[in-house]
Design a protein around this nucleic acid. Structure first.
Lengths: 227, 227
DNA sequence: CCTCGCTCCTGACGGTCCGTCAGATTCTGT
DNA sequence: ACAGAATCTGACGGACCGTCAGGAGCGAGG
């Protein structure tokens, strides 16, 4: 289900390895990290399609060949960035979603906080997340896995909340809790990703947040949010 | 192999022009169309990042130089595909969204139909839509414009429905109708785009559709959907 | 201090794709 | 058949890819 939580082993399976199979030392890891940071930086200003190995290497003050010592291609480097992002996200989402009782004003406030957490996180990692979304849609299992890991806990938390409410006779009767959670998470993710687009319709972030909070609260509890 | 049927004007805006500024004749337009079809076809099986001019040209049985006679780059060709998709989508969405009274069972059924229309449309044009989403996120105004045109009518229809309900004292009091519509559209779009991902949580398309229909109905009317 | 051995980096190369010509080829009208 | 326009393509310089063999940095032990 999950891999080791060793912060050093970023490459998921066998730890960080260079192209020739050896385990990098201090200097090597520093170079690798520098490449990752430059890649992340360039992804913010360059379109994914135009993100070239040469540019990343030049930006990091090294040669293209060095890049290939640590990553088989650009995609893989982005995958590592995505992986780091996930670790951060899982933690934040857990804190935001688990602390909600779903009762009365406090429950509604929890929904508001959750919406805000997601909006903020997406804004911070927008550039990586859009690549994750694209690659996932294109059928890349590695990125799909990243996406799943990021949203799984949040999804489960919302699903069991919805299920609890159903058992108590309060929630959305006749709907699959997993479907409810999935749709809510999708809503949060997509609104967060396209927040800029909403400005075209003159919609502000606060209004988005309030709207989503209401929908979340109602979808989970079946109750009109307290005003 | 070749489709010689003479379609009406292909480019909606300023007419289809070749690289040197002249207006293509029959043969030219046929070639252009063939390139578009091959590009569309390849986008279904190749990742956007690896979609090369050479491959499209070879697939279309012509040379790379010919491609550049009709499109400045791959991106522009995809933009034309996106444009064609929009024309189809606007029509379908208008039909699905405008025919709803939002009253009683028929109103709820309208929400169900809307969800189904979106899910189907996204499934059909998935490969183009994910590029539109990416390019939009990356700040490409041309693609953002495409996205806006696709969703604008749908958005306005939902927004005015929400506003009408508010005026009648029924809807979501205190929320911006545009925000409601935008969030609902975002939900539809993202769930449609990631329908496959939901299978991970064992959620079926029908359940998604029902869940979204309920959320739409409640968000617009403020009423619990009739069972 | 030198040298050995390991780690890390890079110049250089064959290959693919880009984007652009000038010129060859195919159509169209007469 | 022939001129002239429309359309296509071979070929080229340049950019980027991905991979070597070998050079440069660095620590330990003599």
């Amino acid at each position: 289900m999950r891999s080791d939580d060793d912060p050093e082993s970023i490459d998921g399976e066998d730890g960080p390895r260079a192209a020739d199979g050896r385990v990098p030392g201090r200097r090597g890891r520093a170079t690798r990290q520098r490449l990752l940071e430059c890649a992340s930086e360039m992804l913010r200003t360059t379109s994914y399609r135009d993100l070239k190995v040469v540019d990343i290497a030049r930006e990091a003050g090294t040669s293209p060949a060095t890049f290939y010592q640590y990553f088989p291609d650009v995609e893989s480097a982005v995958l590592v960035l995505a992986d780091e992002m996930v670790n951060e996200g899982v933690e934040k989402f857990a804190a935001a979603a688990a602390a909600t009782s779903w009762r009365g004003k406090a429950g509604y406030q929890g929904a508001v906080d959750l919406a805000e957490t997601i909006l903020t996180f997406w804004a911070e990692h927008q550039s990586v997340l859009r690549v994750v979304d694209l690659a996932t849609d294109e059928g890349d299992g590695r990125f799909a896995n990243v996406r799943t890991r990021l949203l799984n806990d949040l999804n489960n938390t919302l699903a069991s909340a919805a299920r609890d409410q159903q058992v108590a006779g309060k929630g959305q009767v006749g709907l699959d809790p997993n479907a409810i959670a999935g749709v809510l998470v999708a809503m949060l993710a997509h609104v967060a990703a396209h927040r800029r687009g909403f400005e075209f319709w003159g919609v502000r972030a606060e209004e988005l947040q309030a709207t989503m909070a209401r929908i979340i609260y109602w979808s989970v509890t079946g109750l009109k949010p307290p005003t």
